[in-house]
Design a protein around this nucleic acid. Structure first.
Length: 185
DNA sequence: CTACCGATCGCCT
DNA sequence: GGCGATCGGTAGC
């Protein structure tokens, strides 16, 4: 089942765990979501916290679309927009489709290093500013509900300074494809 | 394995 | 002018 606007028009805290194990493809390349982080509009760590700007405009648009931003001037990161001002940051995938293309784009051979981080997975899937604001239930995106239930663990978010203690990171327990700094318990 | 550093863009004070 | 929802390389234990 394709995940569209209806799925995302809810609290980010319901949507985030609901994405675990969901296949995400861009032009047929991608894998299963194994790590995400929730960003609520009242969260000091969210880009939307201080209001709308040209960069974060997509966060205030319709649910079920992509919000893509530049991180540290180098990497791209992709979010799924939920209720206005809130979004889910996709942090890691378990690669399943288009391994060769991902390896070529990343310049790495090890499957484990292809999509284990928000910047890495965008490079592997070819996600850039071009994808900002695009609907997730239409090409080039392909996002479906998880085929099976997976065991979810929560953890503190990383890489941020505000409200870093909130347990709003969701990971698939035991996955070998999580980003750096994640306890795999 | 952990720790630090540089790269470099866009928004902020 | 500062700093971040990051990553890869290098140094050191």
């Amino acid at each position: 089942m394709t995940l569209g606007a209806e799925f995302f028009a809810r609290s980010v805290h319901e949507v985030a765990p609901g994405l675990m194990g969901a296949p995400l493809l861009v032009d047929g390349v991608g894998g299963r979501i194994v790590e995400v982080e929730a960003y609520h509009h009242e969260d000091p760590a969210a880009h939307s916290f201080r209001g709308r700007t040209a960069r974060n405009a997509s966060m205030f648009g319709p649910p079920g679309r992509a919000y893509v931003y530049r991180s540290y001037g180098i990497h791209w990161c992709v979010n799924f927009v939920c209720e206005p001002g809130s979004a889910v940051l996709v942090r890691a995938l378990e690669p399943t489709d288009g391994l060769e293309l991902m390896q070529a784009r990343r310049g790495v051979g090890e499957p484990r290093l292809l999509c284990s981080g928000p910047g890495r997975l965008c490079e592997a899937l070819g996600i850039t500013r071009e994808h900002d604001g695009l609907a997730l239930d239409a090409p080039p995106f392909e996002l479906r509900a998880a085929a099976a239930e997976t065991e979810i663990a929560t953890a503190r978010r990383i890489g941020i300074t505000h409200a870093a203690d909130l347990p709003w990171r969701y990971v698939e327990r035991g996955s070998r494809f999580l980003s750096r700094g994640v306890p795999r318990a």
